Simulated assay, not measured.
Amino acid sequence: SWIPRRWVQQPLVYLLSLGVFASAWGYYGSVALAQLYGYGYLSYFGGLAGAFLLTPLLLRPILRITRRYQLNSLADLLA
């Protein structure tokens, strides 16, 4: 692959990729929410901001478990 392995394994890269994904959905979702609920759509952005701020805290224990037990997929983690 053309991306160095040490970059891909960084939690920050994962966090930023989630940010790109969520921002695309967030844009289209917020337009629809603003049309339906007026200023109530701001709670949507508050939730997204809270999720991004808490992601490093929430992912760290999951990453620790997956490394300890050598889990490779979400199915392994849930089993």
Rank of each mutant, 00 (worst) to 15 (best):
L59V: 07
Y27H: 01
L59H: 08
L33Y: 03
A22E: 06
Q10D: 15
Q10E: 14
Y37M: 09
S30L: 08
G29K: 01
F45Y: 08
I3Y: 15
V31E: 03
Y14L: 11
A24M: 08
L78A: 15
A75W: 11
L78Q: 12
L57A: 06
Y44A: 02
R68H: 11
L59K: 06
V31L: 05
G29V: 00
V31I: 08
R67F: 06
L53E: 03
A32T: 11
A79P: 06
L58N: 11
L16H: 04
Q70Y: 13
D76G: 02
T66R: 15
G50T: 12
L36V: 12
S30Q: 10
W7G: 04
W25L: 14
T66F: 08
S1Q: 07
G47F: 05
L74M: 12
I62C: 05
Q10V: 14
L48D: 01
L58C: 13
Q35D: 15
R68V: 07
P61N: 11
Y44L: 00
R5L: 02
Y28F: 07
I65D: 14
L71Q: 12
Y28T: 09
V31Q: 04
D76Q: 09
D76F: 12
L71E: 07
W25H: 13
A49E: 00
V20Y: 04
L57K: 03
L71N: 10
L53S: 10
S17E: 08
L78E: 06
Y37V: 04
R5P: 02
L77A: 13
S43D: 05
A34E: 01
G19E: 05
L57F: 10
A51F: 09
W25I: 14
R64Y: 02
L36F: 09
R6H: 10
A51G: 04
Q10R: 15
Y69K: 14
A24T: 07
R60W: 11
S73Q: 10
G50K: 12
I3V: 15
G47C: 06
L78F: 11
Q35S: 14
G40W: 01
V8S: 05
S1I: 06
L57R: 02
F52D: 02
L42P: 01
V31S: 03
P56M: 08
F21I: 04
W7L: 14
L57W: 09
W7N: 06
T55L: 13
P4A: 09
G40D: 01
D76W: 12
L54A: 11
L15P: 04
L53Q: 10
T66V: 13
F52A: 11
A75T: 14
F21H: 01
Y39N: 07
Y39A: 05
L12M: 15
A32P: 01
S30I: 01
W2S: 13
R64S: 03
A79N: 09
V31P: 01
A34K: 06
S43V: 10
V8T: 07
N72R: 12
A51P: 00
Y69T: 07
V31G: 00
I65G: 07
Y28G: 04
L36N: 05
I62K: 03
S23E: 08
L78N: 09
S73K: 14
G19L: 14
V20W: 05
L33M: 06
Y39D: 06
G47P: 04
A24C: 07
D76R: 08
W7C: 09
A32Y: 09
G29E: 00
W7D: 08
P4R: 04
F21A: 03
R60F: 05
Y41F: 06
W25V: 15
L74H: 02
Y37F: 13
Y37C: 02
